[in-house]
Design a protein around this nucleic acid. Structure first.
Length: 193
DNA sequence: CGGGAGATGGGCT
DNA sequence: GCCCATCTCCCGA
C-alpha cells in the first residue's frame, strides 16, 4: 500500500487488515534501523470474537485494544515471545490487527544479529514472534503511536494479490476459529506458513 | 525443508 | 492451576 497509513487506519478492521499488506513497518532503535513490508495479517474483530483477548472484557492486558486506532498493542505469548498488533476501530470498541509476517527490506544485518538462528533471510520475520525479535519490538512499546513513534507504519509498496483463510492458533475459539480473517500476499516467500 | 517435543511466564477463572 | 494469537531444536530427507 503506497498511501499514507493515517488515511486508512480508521477504516473497519477487515479493511485495515487487508490494506496493511504492502505497508512498511520499521523500528528506528539505538541499535539501528530495521524494517520490512507487511505480507501477512490477522483481524481480531471485537468483544464477541472468542479468539480475541478482548472477549474477556476490558482487562489490564487488553486495555490498549479499547483505545483509539493506530496504536501498538503488544503482548507476551507462551511466556517467551512478543506479538505486535495495530489497534483499530474508534475508542471504546476493542479490535486490532495482528502483524504476522514481514518481507525484510531494511537493516537485514541487524535483524540477523537479533535472530542468529535464522537459517535463511525468509526466516528473519516470517512469524509474529520472529518479527518482533527481528525489529526489537518489546512490551514496553505497548501503546506507542504507530504513525509518529520510532516504531512506525509508513507508505510501502504495491501489494500483490491477497489471499484469505482461517486464523492461526485459535482452535479454542469455537465457531470463530473458522472465520477467514487471516490475509496474506499470495506467493510471498516470507509467510508464516 | 518439515514434523514433533518441549520451553516458559503472565493472564485469567 | 490451566491456557495460551509461538518458536527452536533435533532428527531425517
Amino acid at each position: 500500500m503506497t498511501e499514507a497509513p493515517e488515511a486508512f487506519l480508521k477504516s473497519d478492521t477487515l479493511t485495515v487488515a487487508q490494506r496493511l499488506i504492502g505497508v512498511l513497518l520499521f523500528h528506528q532503535s539505538a541499535d539501528g534501523l530495521a524494517g520490512g513490508f507487511i505480507v501477512e495479517t490477522e483481524a481480531y474483530l471485537g468483544p464477541d470474537d472468542r479468539a480475541s483477548h478482548a472477549s474477556h472484557g476490558r482487562t489490564r492486558r487488553s486495555e490498549t485494544m479499547f483505545g483509539p486506532p493506530g496504536f501498538a498493542y503488544i503482548y507476551l505469548i507462551y511466556g517467551m515471545y512478543n506479538c505486535l498488533n495495530v489497534v483499530t476501530e474508534p475508542e471504546g470498541y476493542p479490535a486490532a490487527v495482528l502483524i504476522r509476517a514481514l518481507e525484510p527490506c531494511m537493516g537485514q544485518d541487524l535483524m540477523r544479529r537479533r535472530r542468529p538462528r535464522a537459517r535463511r533471510e525468509e526466516e528473519l520475520a516470517n512469524g509474529p514472534g520472529k518479527l518482533c525479535q527481528a525489529l526489537g519490538v518489546e512490551r514496553g512499546m505497548n501503546g506507542w503511536n504507530l504513525c509518529t513513534s520510532a516504531l512506525r507504519l509508513s507508505p510501502g509498496r504495491e501489494a500483490g494479490e491477497i489471499g484469505a483463510g482461517p486464523r492461526i492458533g485459535v482452535d479454542y475459539a469455537g465457531s470463530w476459529q473458522e472465520k477467514p480473517w487471516r490475509f496474506y500476499e499470495l506467493g510471498n516467500r516470507n509467510l508464516s506458513r
